[in-house]
Design a protein around this nucleic acid. Structure first.
Length: 254
DNA sequence: GGATTATGCAAATAAACG
DNA sequence: CGTTTATTTGCATAATCC
């Protein structure tokens, strides 16, 4: 039973309870920008991690990054791409100043003991810094990383003390990797029957020595992968960084 | 040559649905 | 429960940085 901070949902499902919990972002004006920057963007209170009831609605797509021409009653969230961009940049900078790696940050998050927040991988931290996450994801992670940053800076100046309290936070999401041979088997099964029954799945799982759930999910993902691309999925993934703060210029091969 | 960081691919998860 | 759809991550590894 692990609950992560994420929140998705394909269908808005906006109904009655769309205007109910509009509590999160009140008061809490400024949290003292540690470094004197972060200008407090207009009303927005990063709902502490935990499970904030942010509406699955709208969030997804919509909101033109340029300017939310519509009312500003969407709970909290600054949501301004430029703010995020600035934060990410400063975050990296300060992280480095602290002499900490992305991987370190990732695992340190668990020590923060924020309910619902476990550690993250180096990948995710990297992506946050380079803004290669979805907008929503960025917004969700920001308060957490900010909390860590403040904690880390505080702890450092306070003492050179490094309490190795690496004890139990929540665990990181684990990812099992399915080896090539079993993958081939699975594909063979898939070819003959893309939607096996529970029992079939159990049998396959046993045969391949995999967990039943792993097999089930594999089939789900497989179906998803092969199903025709939904015409309506242009939700996120870096839709925003259109500006030119040339941060990275990839280039394959020489 | 090892440590860090960036990335492709795809598991795992969540919400709505049945 | 299990499905679909949309999305969030992590593993593995390539690319870079000392």
């Amino acid at each position: 039973a692990e609950q992560y901070i994420r929140r998705s949902g394909r269908e808005p499902a906006l109904e009655g309870e769309l205007l109910e919990h509009l509590t999160p972002g009140l008061a809490l004006g400024a949290m003292a920008a540690p470094d004197g920057a972060v200008v407090s963007t207009p009303g927005h209170a990063p709902h502490m991690a935990g499970m904030n009831p942010m509406h699955p609605a709208a969030l997804g797509m919509a909101h033109a990054h340029g300017l939310p021409a519509h009312m500003g009653c969407m709970s909290d969230v600054d949501a301004d791409p430029r703010d995020l961009e600035a934060f990410a940049e400063r975050f990296k900078q300060r992280r480095i100043k602290l002499g900490v790696t992305q991987a370190d940050v990732g695992s340190a998050l668990a020590n923060l003991k924020i309910p619902g927040v476990g550690s993250l991988s180096q990948s995710t931290i990297c992506r946050f810094e380079s803004l290669t996450l979805s907008h929503n994801n960025m917004i969700a992670l920001k308060p957490i990383l900010q909390a860590w940053l403040e904690e880390a800076e505080g702890a450092q100046r306070e003492k050179m003390n490094k309490p190795e309290l690496f004890n139990g936070g929540e665990k990181k999401r684990k990812r099992t990797s399915i080896a090539a041979p079993e993958k081939r088997s699975l594909e063979a099964y898939f070819a003959v029957q893309p939607r096996p029954s529970s029992e079939k799945i159990a049998a396959i799982a046993e045969k391949l020595d995999l967990k039943k759930n792993v097999v089930r999910v594999w089939f789900c993902n497989q179906r998803q992968k092969r199903s025709p691309p939904s015409p309506r999925s242009w939700t996120s993934r870096r839709t925003w960084s259109a500006s030119g703060s040339a941060t990275s210029a990839r280039s394959r091969s020489a």
